[in-house]
């Protein structure tokens, strides 16, 4: 990996973050913008969960991670604290892989 790629990509990512915070308030005040902005994290988190659980980055893969996510879903439903949710997923996945 080249240092140029590391630094340019880092600057690019920072500018994305800064741009979001710097959009003028009147643009953000529009009801549609507010509705879209409220729904964006919901859609992106749904997508992140799906791609990190059910794909290898290139294609659909069902493996021990799916069981881990199911365990996490049960933990969330039972109102378990955050670390218990994450721990349930990791432990379930690790256990299944150890048994496989």
């Amino acid at each position: 990996m080249t240092w140029a790629a590391v630094l340019l990509a880092s600057v690019g990512c920072y500018l994305c973050k800064l741009a979001g915070l710097s959009v003028p308030a009147r643009v953000v005040a529009a009801p549609r913008v507010q509705r879209v902005a409220a729904l964006l994290p919901v859609a992106l988190l749904g997508a992140l969960i799906a791609t990190q659980t059910f794909t290898d980055g290139r294609e659909l893969v069902i493996d021990a991670r799916a069981a881990g996510l199911a365990a996490a879903a049960v933990a969330v439903w039972r109102r378990a604290p955050f670390l218990a949710v994450v721990g349930a997923a990791a432990a379930t996945t690790a256990l299944l892989r150890a048994l496989a």
């Binding site: 969960i49 990190q52 349930a88 690790a94």
Partner: peptide, 26 residues
């Protein structure tokens, strides 16, 4: 992967998503 760390991340995202899931639209 042996420690299930790759499954811990989507689980964390799920825990973060859950509080926003009020009603049909979200």
């Amino acid at each position: 992967g042996r420690f299930g760390l790759d499954a811990a991340v989507p689980a964390a995202f799920l825990a973060l998503l859950a509080p926003t899931l009020h009603g049909r639209e979200p």
